[in-house]
Amino acid sequence: MVGKDCVAIACDLRLGLQALTVSNNFPKIFQYGDVLLGLTGLATDVATVSDLFRYKVNMYRLREERNIAPSTFANLVSSSLYERRFGPYFVSPVVAGLDQKTGKPFICGFDSIGCIDFAKDFIVSGTATEQLFGMCESLWEPDMVRLDLDFRTLFPPGIFFYMMILLKNGQLNHDVECSTIMHIICTSDLNFTNASYQSTFATGFDEFFANNLNLLDDLQCPEDLFETISQALLNAVDRDALSGWGAHVYIIEKDKVTKRLLKGRQD
């Protein structure tokens, strides 16, 4: 799943034989340098394919003296799977990472014979695909941020309220200029058309942005992404009999990868 300047990838931990759960400690995400690979499907092929890419990526690193880029890795996955076109590995991989040069989020998914599905929002795979689509479709927003600043101390309640709406709609990011925000506020349904209000808001915002130029540094993009992907996964697998039993969540940022274990429902 793509966030603002970060990406996340998550998996459940169940290994089962149809309705029977064999293990609740079977991770399906594998890290190759800066790139992460998720594999769903036949368990034996998950192991075989993840080992195969461990080998291929290690050889790449030794040969080229650099880490493999997410897009390069995606093409490697594609060509490797298609090599087995007429006797495929029964896996549906997902790749996530950040572009090495630009830091732009990169995600894509594949079918079992290596057809790449590039996406700018999210990729789902596995037995809970439908549920995941539903969850992601409703929770995901572009450039997700969470403000840890307490706006109520900085603004009158009305503006705070409106900022929240802007955040909710994904309209507040650094591309949106103050004047645009002002325009939206003044022409909105909230009926803040009173001239004195307008000037109050105007000075309020100008002051706010003047005093908080580092505002964007305080936007907690990875945290919000973590929350979104975790809720999407947990709630999706809870509606699927064949997955769940704990989860791993990886958040990839420019200079770090954070792995978190979610215990999840164990029933």
């Binding site: 040969r63 080229e64 390069t72 093409n75 490697l76 594609s78 060509s79 490797s80």
Partner: peptide
């Protein structure tokens, strides 16, 4: 190219 869908860096080709 057929593996990574990009052309090799010079050193790789040289090797």
């Amino acid at each position: 190219k057929r593996i990574y869908n990009e052309y090799p860096p010079t050193r790789i080709l040289v090797q």
